[in-house]
Amino acid sequence: MSPTALPLLQQWVVVLAALLLFLSFVILAQTRLISAIHAFAWQGALIAGVTAVVAAAAHSPHLYFSAVLTLGLKALLIPWMLHRLTRRLELENQAETLRYPALVGMAAVALIIFSYWLVLPIVQAELNFTRNIVAISLAVVLIGLLMMVVRHQAVAQVLGFMSMENGLFLAAVSATAGMPLVVELGVAFDVLVAMILFGVFFFQIRASIDSLDVDQLNRLTEMTDASDGAEGEVG
């Protein structure tokens, strides 16, 4: 779909979706937790922006409500909660470096191409405009998944999970002009409850292994099996 053929509002949707994809990369590559949380907040704000623009384009007023809800929840409340958690867990200054940042970036680019290839057959279904955005949102979901795989830090993994949710929301908004309000409210509260549960889990994990590096959970099981060799490693 050439952008010259689209009305201006839909051009905005496309641009915002592309920026959202870029922010996924930022969250993926950011070594500092606080900066990653800020990038996540911006992603939430962009989702809200997309929702508002779709609402204006499709003349569906209930989407405005959904945009405000998204803005409040994903751009303000959840980032604030994560921010507070990181401060209480004293993780602000901790930088987690990816072992192969270039490789992870290339994997993310490969995921984008893969999701584009997956969505290509939908061309036949005459969804020519939304197909593009569906490819983007699928890529956002997959990059969130990649982030949960490559990061060792529990808080960073939660960020990956949340940005996966952002991708799903983008797909819902752009492909079907929004879900019914009841479903949307349900999902919003699900995310909120998940966030609270994650907060409890963080403290549980830290209390049991003294760190939020999830990789150490593997080592703990090895330690119970093997007798004394692993003990020096943990300390």
């Binding site: 779909m1 053929a5 592309a18 994809l21 984008i112 191409i113 584009y116 290509l120 593009n132 983007i136």
Partner: peptide, 11 residues
Amino acid sequence: LLSHVMLEVGV
């Protein structure tokens, strides 16, 4: 480059 291919090329 990718967003050009994905978002802007008419099929």
